[in-house]
Each structure stands twice: as structure tokens, then as C-alpha cells.
Design a binder for these strands. Structure first.
Length: 706
RNA sequence: GCGCCCUUAGCUCAGUUGGUAGAGCAGUCCAUUUACACUGGAAAGGCCAGGAGUUCGAGUCUCUUAGGGCGCACCA
């Protein structure tokens, strides 16, 4: 027996060495796998943002995916796990901007586009390197030879091609529409980048001609000249749609028009409101329905425009009380109430979102398009693939959430006024516009200043990583991918958009199954955050207890879609398990002496049943059950009972009994190691080296026993 | 407002198509030159949140009440 078993298991001496053995073997790359691996199995890694380092959520993701990948590889699949990172446009840019302010007191405009982008790229490169190290530390059996970045040259070509194709299909258009404007970040943001925050404010009732209107935002009311009510509201039957009337308003006399619209809530306020199409999504939609005009009241930095008269140039917060004061002086203020509502803030900058009508690029989700003879809208396509079960979402309750979200989906604004990201592949020359993959020939063309929403490039991830738009062998072999494993918090941001992009551009699905994991919280169920000081760093855990223990602690006791409460004690507990396995091996190897495993002499129904059971759990993504069952069997059945009983047999048994018992111990241990390998790859691989087995391969490519 | 989830041993959670309640951790008692103290054994601990229903049978299915969490929409 190897002397290493005389000491307790030390992950520090094992893990890095084993990882380089794996790398050297080349088996992370499906092209190098032995012949029995024919049928492909693919997972693309959800690319971590290059905004910093990995947290426990990433570690959980890596553990789950690596377990499935190793399992499939041992089952004989041509297994590809493809890594990459995400440039995360706005998140990365705002992070660097914050650091610039802190370190140099400068902003991006001081530096200029080129210099600033250089800084962002440097930051991204550093982040990237850290992330790669962390992924390796977790034991991820991922194919580094195919690594991608959402903002590298190949992915840029994919983005430009996608843009051009969708433009030609009529799905990408440029238009003046209401968007979420972040005055702090000076960019548009998507509906999903909004965080609602509760705010206590005043709700004012003003006389508006013969009506009383309610508003929380008097500062937007300068240009209001339409008064809207529900067509069935009996209080206002005498006013007909299209009626006009004269009234005195903030800055003088105006003419207003009555509009009847069913979207009005009769029970809210007085059931009458005026609309501000330029600064409210709902109002914009009403205006659009009735073809009403509107005008901009607030500028891009949140100041009132000349339409506000004497209030022109003031900030909203300053103007609001003064406007109320003026209306009060005019006798137009009827009453005011305390009011609590949710205001929209930008996730990344915290700025209060001001809806604005702006000329931006959009993806039309409700427009029919024709591809391969089929005619449908993106929305219909996105619903169809999930409702027809072409894509299965685990746990299935998220299918409802997905469908609900799709039904509420509006056109997706894809242009951003930031610098870090894929530049929009559109060029202008006076009235002319050119959309293309390459810059147009000829003089005087100027490219659009804006970049694309980061999710535009992430949406292409399953196929841009495989070489699209080129018709590569990889694309043919590995796409559609088998599984997308990610956090439920990005179901809409990302999963839905991948389905959109893939359906539209490749006329297929990006993946067959979506497995959603939950958030990793601290031992008390609180979200881990720097300010709470309750962050558990995966690298610390790996250093202290080993990657194997860290992996198990993130798997066992956590079903799909559920948040996981993680404490350091839990990780410590699984370190004990690695050592237990180590000592089990020590005992078995000492006991069997020079015996070499002969599989044909052993059969064990109990173990067979367990392995069948575990296999079925693996196939059905019940990793938490599979892991726990193996853990329990190894420790409390094999070690506590079988090994104890073996001591008696070896002492008192006949020569034949002893020989067959030795075979039985070797057999059982080898199967346990194989089945546990996906979960705890390091310690099992290290033990495997010393197993007395003929024609042994590396454990990572041994055959799964069922 | 619309929707989803959770409530099972002190704590964290399993319980896969309904068939006499399970694990880990913690705690209690016992053992101790043992493959392993990163140990073993034993006992203890639960009207499965409350109520009603379906069923021969419900932690599991249906309805309902209460408490907790989350998502979406948003009110002018």
C-alpha cells in the first residue's frame, strides 16, 4: 500500500496536481476522448461577468455543471463543456467609471472613448484571469481550448451578422419610442435592468377645467392637453371622446381634449388623468392608440425644458414644490395626500429612471416574420418552444413564470449610450442609412455612436461560441446544446433571449433542458453581501476544506430552483467525508494485500440497486439525492457495517471466504469511487491511482457502472 | 393588483407516481493505543403550520385560513 494513506487526506497536496493531470490527458476536449464517445453532450458555461471575482453562486453553478458533465463523460458521451466570460457592458463600464472617480477624479468623457476603453479592457482582462483560476480550482472539467468571450472578434462577427440578418427580416428597427432613460448613467436601460424602490411622496389633486385630476408628478404636467377617462365611467358620460374645452393651467390658458380609454382605472383617484406621453410608458401607449401628440418636458439630465416657462432649467426636485405652490396660488390645488408608490431606479447606477421618447434601436417582438416558410412573431415562437416541451424547464414551475413574462413582453430596446460593448453596425451619411456586417465603402459614412445591450451578444452564446456564422463542424456536432444550467434570476435576462435569438437566426432551440439553481445564502438565509460581511468566499473554502468538500456542500440538500443556505460547518462536514473515504481505502488496500480486482467473481444486488437508483437520480437532475445516497452508502453502510463485518470474516473465514471477501471489498470500493467521482473528483481520482485494477484508465473516463 | 414558492426533529433540509415519518448538523449517554477522533455504538427528539374535503389509506391530491419569502405589473 502506498504510504500516502498513512496520513490523513490532504487536499492541498492533491488538488492542483490532479487538475494538471487532467489537463495533460486532454480529455476535457471531446475531440480527444477514446472511441466509445460518439453521441455528443453539450453544456455551455453561463459566462461570468468580467466585473470581478466569482462568488458562491458561481461555485454552485460550476459544481452542478461539472457533476453532470463528468457523469455524461463516464456514460460515454462526446462531452463538451465550453467556457467563456461576459463583457457585461454596462456593469463593467460603470464599475470602471466608479473606480476612475475614486482614483483619479475623472470621468470617461475626460479621457475620451479610446483611452477609456483601454482602461475597461485592462480591467476586464484582470478579472478574466482571476475567474479562470477560480474555475480551475473548483475542478471544472471544462474545455479551455474552446474558450470564448462575448466581446472578442469572433463573437463580434456573430453580433454584426445577427444584427444584419434581423434587420433584413424586419425585426430590428429604429424608432422614436418611449424608453427607460437613466439620467445618472446617461443611457437607456431595458425593462429588466430596473429595480423598483418604495418612495413616500405626495399625491396632488388639481382642478383641470371641469375635472379634477390626480398626480404625483406635477412637474411633467406642462404640456398635458389630453384628459383621459374610462368610456364606461358614469360620472363622466356627458363628456364625449374628442370634446374640447378651455382651461387655466400652470402657465396660462390652454385647450384640452377629452379622450376615452379602457386602460383607465376608474377606482383610482378621480378616475380622470391627463397624459404625458413623453415621460410615462402607459401615457405613451395611450397616445399611440389615439394618435395624440406630445412633447418633451424634461431633458436628459433631469432638468425642465423651456416649455416649463419660469421653471425652465430647474431640477425636478427643486421645481416640484414651486409648481405646486403656483397652482395653489391660482386656486387650482384641491387637496394633497400622503402617497406611497414604487419608483423605477437603474439597477447599476441607482439613478431614478425617467421615461423619455428617443430615437433608438429596437427588436420587434410582435411583428410577424417569415423564415423557412413559417410566419410568426418572436413572441409566438418563444411561447411555442416551451409550451410544446421542445424546451423543458426544471423545476417546471418556472415554465409558468416564463410564459407570464413572455406575455408581458414589449419591444426590446437594444441600443445603449455607453462605450463598452459591441458598436451598432449601422452607418449614416446625411439621409442615408447603411446596415451591414462590414463598414460601407465610400466617403463620409459615420458609424452609430451607440453600443448594443449586453444581452444581445449573450443571446447568441450557444452558437456564437461554436463558430456561427461560419458553418463549423462544432456547430453541426454540438448544437442545439443539451443543457443550460443557470440561476433562476436570469431566466428573463438571458434564457428567454437565447431562445429568441436562436429561434430567429437558426430556426432551432439553443438547448433542450434548462436547469435553474437558486441563490446561495448564508447560514441564516440572508443574501450574502459585502455590507453585511457574511460572504463566504469559494476560494477560502477550497483552501481550508478542499474543492470536493465545497462541491458537496453546494449540492447536497439543495433541489433545483431552491435557495441554498450555506454555512462553513456544512463545508467542514464534507471534508470529513473525503477523509473517511481515504481511510476506507487505507483499510481495504491493507486488507486485500496483493489481490487484484476480478470483476467477474463478484455480484452484489444491494450495490446494483443503489447504483441504478443513483443513475435514475442523475438522469432526472436529482443530484442532491444521488450525492446523499452515495455519501450515506459509503459511510454508513460500507464503512460502518460491511468493513466491520469483514474484519470478522477475515479472521474466522475459510480461505475461499477470505478471497471472495477481498474481491468484494475491492469491487465495492471501485464502484463507489466511480459513482462518487462526478461529485468529488479530486479525492476519488487520487485514490483511483492506487486501486489494484488491471488496464485501469484515468477515473474521469472510466465507465459509469449502469 | 396578478402569479409563484415555503411552513416536516433544536437548526438546515430530504421525502421522486398517495402505502405505517428520514438524513446531516447540534445535543444526551456509552465505548476508546481503533482503517479513520476528520471515530464507533445506543437512546432521545415530530398531532408533517391550522381547518375542511377526496380516498380503504394524505406530509404527498383539492379547497380554505394564517405566517414567511420571491417574481411580475404598476396607479396617473
Amino acid at each position: 500500500m502506498n504510504e500516502k494513506f498513512l496520513k490523513p487526506y490532504n487536499h492541498l497536496e492533491v488538488e492542483d496536481k490532479i487538475y494538471s493531470d487532467w489537463i495533460e490527458s486532454g480529455y476535457f476536449n471531446p475531440d480527444n476522448l477514446p472511441k466509445r464517445h460518439e453521441e455528443p453532450y453539450t453544456i455551455v458555461l453561463p459566462p461570468p461577468n468580467v466585473t470581478g471575482t466569482l462568488h458562491m453562486g458561481h461555485a454552485a453553478m460550476l459544481a452542478i455543471e461539472d457533476i453532470l458533465i463528468r457523469y455524461k463523460r463516464m456514460k460515454g458521451f462526446k462531452t463538451l463543456w465550453l467556457p467563456g466570460t461576459d463583457h457585461a457592458a454596462i456593469a463593467t463600464q460603470s464599475k470602471v467609471e466608479k473606480e476612475l472617480v475614486k482614483a483619479e477624479g475623472t470621468n470617461r468623457h475626460d479621457l475620451g472613448r479610446e483611452v477609456f476603453l483601454k482602461k475597461v479592457n485592462d480591467f476586464a482582462t484582470t478579472s478574466h484571469d482571476t475567474i479562470v483560476t477560480q474555475v480551475k480550482k473548483m475542478g471544472a472539467s471544462i474545455d479551455w481550448s474552446r474558450e470564448a468571450f462575448t466581446l472578442d472578434e469572433k463573437r463580434n462577427l456573430a453580433v454584426r451578422t445577427a444584427f444584419k440578418e434581423m434587420y433584413d427580416l424586419g425585426l430590428i428597427y429604429r424608432g422614436n419610442r418611449i424608453v427607460n432613460w437613466d439620467p445618472k448613467g446617461q443611457t437607456t436601460i431595458s425593462d429588466d435592468e430596473i429595480v423598483y424602490e418604495e418612495q413616500k411622496t405626495k399625491f396632488y389633486y388639481f382642478k383641470y377645467g371641469p375635472f379634477t385630476i390626480g398626480t404625483a408628478r406635477p412637474e411633467t404636467k406642462f404640456g398635458d392637453k389630453y384628459v383621459v377617462m374610462h368610456p364606461d365611467d358614469e360620472r363622466y358620460v356627458k363628456y364625449k371622446h374628442g370634446d374640447t374645452f378651455e382651461l387655466e393651467w400652470i402657465n396660462g390658458h390652454i385647450t384640452a381634449t377629452v379622450i376615452k380609454d379602457e386602460s383607465i382605472d376608474m377606482t383610482f383617484g378621480t378616475g380622470v388623468m391627463t397624459i404625458t406621453p413623453y415621460h410615462s410608458t402607459v401615457d405613451f401607449e395611450i397616445a399611440e392608440r389615439h394618435k395624440l401628440s406630445g412633447e418633451q418636458i424634461i431633458d436628459k439630465v433631469g432638468k425642465l425644458l423651456p416649455v416649463a416657462g419660469e421653471f425652465s432649467g430647474m431640477k425636478i426636485a427643486e421645481a416640484r414644490p414651486k409648481i405646486v405652490e403656483k397652482l395653489k396660488a391660482k386656486g387650482l390645488l384641491e387637496k394633497e395626500e400622503d402617497y406611497t408608490h414604487n419608483i423605477a431606479t437603474a439597477e447599476r447606477t441607482g439613478g431614478i429612471v425617467e421615461p423619455q421618447v428617443m430615437l433608438q434601436w429596437f427588436i420587434a417582438v410582435n411583428k410577424k416574420f417569415k423564415k423557412n416558410g413559417k410566419e410568426q412573431t418572436l413572441k409566438e415562437m418563444m411561447l411555442e418552444v416551451v409550451e410544446s416541451k421542445k424546451i423543458t424547464i426544471i423545476p417546471d414551475r418556472f415554465e409558468k413564470t416564463y410564459i407570464h413574462w413572455i406575455n408581458n413582453l414589449r419591444d426590446w430596446c437594444i441600443s445603449r449610450q455607453i462605450w463598452y460593448g459591441h458598436r451598432i453596425p449601422v452607418w449614416y451619411k446625411s439621409e442615408e442609412i447603411y446596415v451591414g456586417i462590414e463598414e460601407p465603402r465610400g466617403e463620409g459614412w459615420k458609424q452609430d455612436e451607440d453600443t448594443l445591450d449586453t444581452w444581445f451578444s449573450s443571446g447568441l452564446w450557444t452558437f456564437s461560441t461554436l463558430g456561427w456564422p461560419e458553418k463549423t463542424t462544432d456547430l453541426k456536432t454540438f448544437h442545439p446544446t443539451d443543457l443550460l444550467e443557470t440561476g433562476y434570476d436570469i431566466l428573463f435576462f438571458w434564457v428567454a433571449r437565447m431562445i429568441l435569438m436562436t429561434g430567429c437566426l437558426l430556426d432551432t432551440i439553443p438547448f433542450k433542458t434548462v436547469y435553474l439553481h437558486g441563490l446561495v445564502r448564508d447560514g441564516k438565509g440572508k443574501k450574502m453581501s459585502k455590507s453585511l460581511g457574511n460572504i463566504i468566499d469559494p476560494l477560502d473554502m477550497i483552501e481550508k476544506y478542499g474543492a470536493d468538500a465545497t462541491r458537496l456542500s453546494l449540492i447536497i440538500g439543495n433541489g433545483p430552483g431552491n435557495d441554498l443556505k450555506l454555512s462553513e460547518d456544512k463545508v467542514r462536514g464534507y471534508k470529513h467525508f473525503a477523509n473517511k473515504l481515504w481511510n476506507i481505502t487505507r483499510f481495504v488496500l491493507t486488507t486485500v494485500e496483493s489481490e487484484v480486482l476480478d470483476e467477474n467473481t463478484v455480484s452484489d444486488k444491494e450495490l446494483d440497486d443503489l447504483l441504478k437508483d443513483v443513475t435514475s437520480d442523475m438522469e432526472n437532475y436529482r443530484l442532491y439525492l444521488a450525492g446523499e445516497k452515495l455519501y450515506h452508502y459509503a459511510w454508513h453502510r460500507f464503512a460502518d457495517e460491511i468493513l466491520e463485518e469483514s474484519k470478522r470474516v477475515l479472521k474466522e473465514g475459510t480461505v475461499e471466504e477470505i478471497k471472495s471477501r477481498k474481491q468484494f471489498l475491492l469491487y465495492t470500493l471501485s464502484k463507489i469511487l466511480i459513482a462518487l467521482h462526478p461529485f468529488i473528483p479530486y479525492v476519488t481520482e487520487e485514490i483511483w491511482k492506487d486501486m489494484p485494477i488491471k488496464d485501469k484508465k484515468m477515473l474521469m473516463i472510466e465507465e459509469w457502472p449502469v
